[in-house]
Computed example of a mutant assay.
Amino acid sequence: MTTEPAVLVLEDGRRFEGRAYGARGRTLGEAVFATGMTGYQETLTDPSYAGQIVMQTAPHIGNTGVNDTDKESAKIWVAGYVVRDPSRVVSNFRAQRSLDDDLETDGVVGISGIDTRAVTRHIRSAGAMRAGIFSGAEYELSATEQLGAVRAGAEMAGQKLSSVVSTRERYQVPAIGERVGSVAVLDLGVKTSTLNYLAERGLDVEVLPESVTVDEVLEIAPDALFYSNGPGDPEASESHVELLREVLKSGVPYFGICFGNQLLGRALGFGTYKLPFGHRGINQPVLDKLTGRVEITSQNHGFAVDAPREGVVDSPAGFGRVEVSHLSLNDDVVEGIRCLDIDAFSVQYHPEAAAGPHDSMYLFDRFREMVLARRESPAGQLPTASSEGDHE
């Protein structure tokens, strides 16, 4: 275990001394905390964590190592990584490398040995904020210089990061089993498991770069459109909002998750806002208002949709009736939207959580049924609450 010093510096001046972990140097980003006790590899390789210094609230991280199978993308995307006690050994038959090996290979500057509970409590009180990790030669900078670097960094509000994480070229993932249709996936930071789960529902998946135009989408003539998770401020993604509005007008069914939920909200005419410290982790309770069931969900979002929590309302942008379908049981944040007059719905969490939980996998089945219904009848609508049935 290294004894090289490192320091985490928050933009309000708080400093937390620890040990260097992963690559050495300087990194800047928004400091956030993730509450999952497992799934650290999926978190690190999730593109929607781009630009963020992620701190794990679970104290012991790295004991199962890393492998190539569980990666959600080709690289680690977090700007920096903070843990309390990194595992000294790797003990898992699936492990191919240690976690710190991958952090060093991908150039991710981290820190260990700090009181992550104290940092978490501070962020919960003061809110997510800019931060920096300094190790190696960067540790030798004065406290004033380090704080100046942090305060000169970009704030998450106003950032459009989809262009950083999106694919540069179109590519396909073929349907698995019986083919039921095709789906165009706008890659705003899509995860590998999302594409796999769509393909397993019999959908030919056409993955598109975030710069695609509405004409290019309609030229493909997909049976449905899907917006993925992704990093950044939804208010800075108006081009994606306008594209979605045009596709919705054409009658193509839509399903969005996370960032895709925020963009549907904006396309329908609602606003979005930044949460004080966001929801991140794989233990977030959500109420499905259609069934009354509580789902334990995986989440990573710092922004949310501002829409009426109760009742059916008219879309301010003219897309008919809309209702909030899911709510956070922690803070009443909107966790899902359901359109009643067009084939569109979305959720703010990750039903594709590869590390679990799997309570929300039924949403992919709901999307599949929407595609089937649309193909059978051009006027096909989302199933009503009474016809959707139970899910486990």
Rank of each mutant, 00 (worst) to 15 (best):
F303T: 05
M370S: 15
L363K: 06
E335I: 03
L372K: 10
V9M: 08
R124V: 08
A224S: 04
Y197N: 13
V54H: 00
G389D: 12
F270M: 06
G260Q: 02
S298G: 15
I342D: 00
V312M: 04
H326Q: 13
A31P: 09
S239A: 14
I123C: 07
I111Q: 00
V212F: 04
T35I: 12
T38I: 15
R94L: 15
L198C: 14
C339A: 13
V217W: 02
R97K: 11
V207K: 01
G148F: 12
N196K: 10
I257T: 02
G202R: 09
V78F: 01
G62F: 03
T57C: 12
G181K: 00
L188I: 07
R366F: 12
L327Y: 03
N229C: 09
V322D: 00
I53G: 05
L225S: 04
A379N: 14
A79P: 08
G356K: 09
L10V: 04
T57R: 12
E352I: 01
D390W: 08
A58Y: 11
G148W: 02
T194L: 07
Q172A: 11
I114V: 13
H279I: 02
R15D: 01
E169D: 14
I133G: 08
L198A: 11
L340M: 15
T297I: 06
V333W: 04
V371D: 02
V334I: 10
S377D: 15
A154E: 11
D85A: 13
G269C: 10
R94F: 12
S135E: 08
R121N: 14
V9Y: 00
T27S: 04
S315Y: 07
I296A: 03
V82Q: 07
A199F: 09
K274I: 10
S162W: 03
Q348H: 11
A131M: 01
S239F: 05
S91V: 14
S98H: 03
F270V: 06
F367C: 07
S193H: 11
L147H: 05
L186T: 00
T167C: 15
A6Y: 02
T120V: 05
V164A: 10
A154M: 09
Y139A: 10
D331V: 09
G36Q: 09
S211M: 08
N300G: 07
G271L: 10
M156L: 15
T64H: 07
D365G: 11
A373M: 09
R168G: 13
E376Q: 13
I114C: 03
T144P: 07
M370W: 01
D115M: 08
A317L: 08
Q41R: 04
T297A: 11
D390N: 14
M370Y: 01
L141K: 06
Y21G: 05
P209L: 11
G36W: 01
L264W: 01
Q52M: 06
C258E: 04
G271P: 07
E219Y: 06
V185M: 03
T38G: 13
L340Y: 09
S87A: 15
E295D: 14
Q41W: 01
V54R: 01
D68P: 12
S387Q: 14
Q159V: 10
R88P: 13
G189S: 09
S239T: 11
A355H: 14
L8H: 03
V82Y: 03
V78M: 01
N67C: 07
S112R: 08
A385N: 09
R88I: 15
D215T: 09
D223C: 07
